[in-house]
């Protein structure tokens, strides 16, 4: 099953609707990395509220996604991780190192706004 990717302002938002297979996850990662370039996006939000399991493969794929989009100029934030899922992930010893996480879509957008604003200011200073 494919995950719809919405474009909103400078951001791409991918809302996972149901359990994903490994192939679906890889496809999502590749699609997002490609579209970040196509739309010159500054941020990516992956909403995982519907995921009831995040195992080592899912975590690794999301981590790779975040690192790859960062190299292409967009910050990724994972939103909607369920408390039980967060608990199982840490018990399993999985870390989303270097990847931002937020409670939900609203928080994720707020996080990206704050990052992008700060980034923008840096660029202005460099230009001036």
């Amino acid at each position: 099953m494919t995950v719809p990717i919405l474009k909103q302002r400078d951001y791409l938002i991918a809302s996972i609707q149901a359990a994903l297979t490994d192939a679906d996850l890889k496809h999502l990662r590749d699609a997002l990395v490609a579209q970040v370039g196509d739309y010159r996006s500054r941020g990516v939000i992956v909403d995982v509220t519907a995921l009831d399991v995040m195992d080592s493969f899912a975590v690794r794929t999301l981590r790779d996604l975040a690192h790859m989009t960062r190299l292409r100029g967009a910050e990724t934030v994972i939103v909607g991780i369920q408390p039980e899922v967060a608990f199982a992930m840490t018990q399993l010893g999985l870390r989303l190192e270097g990847v931002a996480a937020a409670l939900d879509l609203e928080e994720g957008l707020a996080y990206l706004d704050s990052r992008v604003k700060r980034g923008g200011m840096t660029r202005q200073r460099l230009e001036g």
Binding site: V79, I81, M89, T90, L103, E107, Y111
Partner: peptide
């Protein structure tokens, strides 16, 4: 350490 990380995954 795990507790701290799990909280971070919920954005805290």
């Amino acid at each position: 350490v795990q507790t701290v990380e799990a909280a971070r995954l919920l954005g805290a």
